[in-house]
Amino acid sequence: MTQGQGRGMRWGVLVMGVVLLSGCSGMQPKAWQRGDLAQPEMAWDPDPVDAAMRQHTYDSKEAASGSATVGGGGCGCN
């Protein structure tokens, strides 16, 4: 692992730790707020078919890739 990768990894672990700790410190939603959290537009990808096509396009035109999923294959994109 390069120095840059190590630095990125450490930041990732730190942020996840902060997020986890903050969740344990009284940020519980009220009962009526559960409905807000469950509305479709709060989803990570409310329109997954469109999101998949956009991601496929960016992946074929840019060097960077990677997300919170393992699905999908590559392409012989020109």
């Binding site: 990894m9 996840m16 997020v19 940020m27």
Partner: peptide
């Protein structure tokens, strides 16, 4: 060939906010 993996944590931050952070390695 390609081997990839990821780990992520998602957290409700009150009644109006959700945050997710994940790290993937390929």
């Amino acid at each position: 060939y390609e081997v990839n993996s990821y780990a992520g944590l998602a957290q409700v931050l009150g009644g109006e906010t959700v945050l997710q952070s994940s790290v993937s390695f390929t």
